[in-house]
Amino acid sequence: MADTVPHLRTEALAALAEAADDAALATWHVRYLGRKEGRLTGVLRGLAQLPVEERRAVGAAANALKAELEAAYEEQREALRRMAVRQALEGGSVDVTLPPRPRARGRLHPVTQTLRQMLDAFRSMGFSIVEGPEVELDYYNFEALRIPADHPARDMWDTLWVDDGTPRPRSLLMRTHTSPAQIRVMEQHQPPIRIVVPGRAYRHEATDTTHEWMMTQVEVLAVDEGLTLAHLKGTLLGVMQRLFGSERRIRLQCSYFPFVEPGAEVAMDCFNCAGTGCATCHQSGWIEMGGAGMVHPEILERMGIDPARYTGFAAGMGLERLAMQLYGVPDMRFFYQNDLRMLQQF
């Protein structure tokens, strides 16, 4: 029983200061504070052999030393940890300007992105999204929209006819617009109706920078009590402001489509020059969006909807032209060439 408390204290603290890594620290702990072999533990165990009068004083000193050594041990351990972290960081600094680790970039096609924006705007106004077949019957694409065979308005939609097994196929066609869904929806639903119909449409058309034979169209139809040309204007204005900014204005000019009356062409003021004229809008200040109007009362009547009570508006818009504006794409044909160097920019 050689160890006295003060002696042990001096020695232990000196040894602790020498412990420079985790292993030395662990060895130190076993030597002085270990449950089996620890020297201080030995002192405490030996208390029983001491005379009663010493037992109390030595016991208190030994317990105080135990607390002190434990605290010193924790402190030393923390100091070592901090030093290790500091050393690790000092040795391994990174050049923060290096490029990130590559991850595969996936993007939606810019036409899809434009369409999503437009549909979100319509959805927020309570419109349902509906789709229809891309190959249509003449009836839905033309006849039911008041464009019978031999009607001069047929020239407004150059049609791709699908072979139906007859010598002069005129029953199946690639839909020239998504308007047929108007009829298909009104066959199934009574007012109030609010739908948008996105989808591919096809025309027998020569392609150039602003024309494609395949295009994406959005048809809009609302039928309810109290709908007027003013609601058509307000709805389209709302959508265009969502897409192109709240300062946008739209313009209706009189036009003719057999399935609406009154009919209109819709244009939006150019977001690039705000209507003063620039290359984006071909100096006109306006960007054409599509055709629109009030649903012809004869169509409502044929669909079993009372035209004296209900009115409706409809509009059809080409997506590619809007996407061109939105993304500054100079040539419509770029969309379907699918060059990744172009698509991955969006």
Binding site: H109, M174, Y202, Y336, L340
Partner: peptide, 13 residues
């Protein structure tokens, strides 16, 4: 697209 694929739109005909 989230998985990293690029969407394309090709002609129907």
């Amino acid at each position: 697209a989230e998985a990293g694929m690029q969407e394309v739109i090709t002609y129907s005909l």
